[in-house]
Simulated assay, not measured.
Amino acid sequence: MKSFLLEEREQGCLLFTINRPEKRNAVNFDVMDGLSEAINLAKKPGVKTLVITGAGEAAFCSGGDLSVFHQLKTEEEAYGMLSKMSNILYRLLTLPKPTIALMNGTAVGGGCEIAAACDFRVAKKGQKAGFIQGSLAISTGWGGGTILFEKLLAGNALKMLMESRLFQVEELADFGFIDHIYDGDREEVCDSFLRKILSLETDVLSAYKKMLIRKWTVSGLQKRMEEEVRNCAALWEKDVHHELVAKFLERKS
């Protein structure tokens, strides 16, 4: 089964689906490559928006696939993977088209980092999400922590990161992380959320998005994301991280 699906829908909507429901839509290198491909396709003149979601109803994305990435032991090995995904998320963040995380289920760790890199987050009622990386003795490593501080009040971002737990979707809406909570058919909800946005010309949408991108360029966001990657890579190789991941995988087996 293919790890991701790409579909060009009506009104210029490009839909990217992480298609690993048996792994709670965890990210592996194939998913990374697929997201990179989706970002490239979204630059086409006929595409107005990129929507990211997960297959099934249980999970939007459970972060990095630990069964794969636990094989990375050293700081150098971890840096290769972390920097690859960080570069993809920076490209997603600075795509000159509106982007939506259609969060159909739980978002954990790197799944929240992907969601943070999108312009809007539409979440299913009853779901939970959280940056749980701290519980595995690492920090965010794909740039999502840095992005979070760009989008939320500092206190709210710090609470989400430092408590390293799952939050109810209502709490996340109060923090400003979730823009809309839905209950029902997710594609219908997404179409409704996007209706007014997609009624505008693509050049108009891009003009507004570029205002935000200019702000991030001036503030050196990419460099700050790179520092986050390096900090996480240094923590990754520590014994405590590998011990906690091993225990986590044992519980899951």
Rank of each mutant, 00 (worst) to 15 (best):
M162A: 13
F167P: 00
V189D: 13
G110T: 06
G130N: 01
N40T: 10
E226A: 11
H70K: 09
S253N: 14
L102D: 02
V51P: 00
K223R: 15
L82M: 14
L5M: 07
F149T: 05
G126W: 12
I213M: 06
F69Y: 07
I197H: 08
R251E: 13
S219G: 06
K223P: 01
M225A: 06
Y182P: 06
N231Y: 03
L5Y: 01
E77D: 15
L41S: 10
M32G: 02
L194H: 08
E75R: 14
A246N: 01
I88C: 02
E7R: 14
F131D: 00
E75I: 05
L15D: 01
I132C: 13
C118Y: 00
M81H: 10
E250C: 02
C232P: 07
A157N: 12
V108S: 04
L50V: 09
A55P: 07
V218I: 13
S135W: 02
T217Y: 07
V169F: 12
G111P: 03
F248I: 13
K128A: 10
T94P: 09
F16Q: 05
M162P: 00
R20N: 03
L14C: 11
W236R: 05
T140W: 00
G144K: 00
L35I: 06
L200F: 12
C232H: 04
E228L: 11
E201D: 15
V189K: 09
N87H: 15
H180W: 12
S206G: 11
L161T: 12
P98C: 12
E237L: 10
S219P: 04
K238I: 13
D174G: 08
H242Q: 10
F16H: 07
G56L: 08
I18L: 02
A234S: 12
V229H: 01
A117C: 14
Q71H: 11
M81T: 14
L35T: 06
M103P: 03
F193Y: 12
L200D: 05
H242V: 09
I138G: 01
K209H: 04
G109P: 01
L235V: 12
F177E: 03
F193K: 08
A107M: 09
A234Q: 13
E227P: 07
R91P: 05
K159F: 00
V189A: 15
E76R: 15
V245K: 07
G134V: 03
P21T: 01
T49D: 02
P96R: 12
